[in-house]
């Protein structure tokens, strides 16, 4: 279980996150939503210990983030940032193999190789395995990084806008893959995402931020409502029924 208690982040005068207290459900796909600059990445990066909080505590499985040994935490929690850039020329397979580093410390065993193959297979980039990542398209590169996070094989998977650069088909496939990981491997996925229809269709639970503060958190059907979305995004969003889901329409 991931727990935030009064987490605050300041950058000089700007308050990126103010006093967020929150418990995230496990074995669910949890979506972090909010407008640009709302503090989503800040929250995700604090949970993933990429940046320190200015105040407050984060607990993962009952242990404060500070008390986790970094290698132990890397076996339990993987985080993929919003901007992915590596100046190193690595092949897709090498990149994904580095996801195994916390477990193998560089000596890949048969089990590691199988997990790497699976990650490439699930994300549909097996055919690209020998390509250098600096010679891929933006979307292909994005998927390679997602495969790396999946190969890390952690209980918690944190992804910051993983659908960036992906076409609808690939985006839907990645979301279905995350659902499968939750269902079959009991993973807990936390992702920042802007497309609220993907949220409506694939997330179990939604956390909404506004101006650095926690605005709403609850089951998807409780958050995907016109009045909530109007408050979060400051715009009119119509909700239509489609099969048993809700479809958000935000074009005028």
């Amino acid at each position: 279980m991931i727990r935030l208690c009064n987490v605050t982040k300041r950058y000089g005068e700007t308050v990126a996150l103010s006093g967020v207290t929150l418990s995230l459900p496990t074995e669910k796909v949890v979506a972090l939503i909010g407008s640009n600059g709302a503090g989503k990445s800040t929250a995700l990066n604090i949970i993933g210990r990429l940046i320190p909080a200015s105040a407050g505590t984060v607990e993962i499985d009952g242990k404060s983030l500070r008390d986790w040994k970094s290698n132990e935490l890397a076996k339990r929690l993987a985080i993929l940032g919003q901007t992915l850039y590596t100046p190193a020329r690595l092949t897709v397979e090498e990149l994904v193999a580095f996801g195994r580093f916390p477990h193998s410390r560089g000596n890949l065993g048969a089990a590691d190789l199988r997990i790497i193959d699976d990650a490439l297979e699930y994300t549909g980039i097996s055919t690209l395995r020998g390509c250098f990542i600096d010679e891929l398209s933006g979307g292909q590169r994005q998927i390679a990084y997602i495969a790396m996070a999946i190969a890390q094989d952690t209980k918690y998977i944190l992804l910051d806008e993983p659908l960036n650069n992906l076409d609808m088909n690939k985006a839907a496939k990645i979301m279905k893959l995350l659902r499968t990981l939750v269902r079959e491997k009991k993973r807990s996925v936390l992702l920042v995402i802007h497309d609220i229809n993907f949220v409506s269709f694939y997330a179990d639970y939604v956390v909404a931020f506004k101006n650095g503060a926690l605005k709403y958190s609850g089951k998807t059907e409780d958050v995907i409502r016109s009045e909530v979305l109007r408050d979060v995004y400051d715009m009119e969003i119509a909700i239509k029924s489609y099969r048993d889901k809700r479809l958000c329409v935000y074009y005028e």
């Binding site: 993933g48 990429l50 970094s70 985080i79 580095f98 996070a149």
Partner: peptide, 10 residues
């Protein structure tokens, strides 16, 4: 691969 990737990998 950068500070973020390194931290994520422990």
């Amino acid at each position: 691969m950068g500070k973020g990737a390194a931290t994520s990998l422990g």
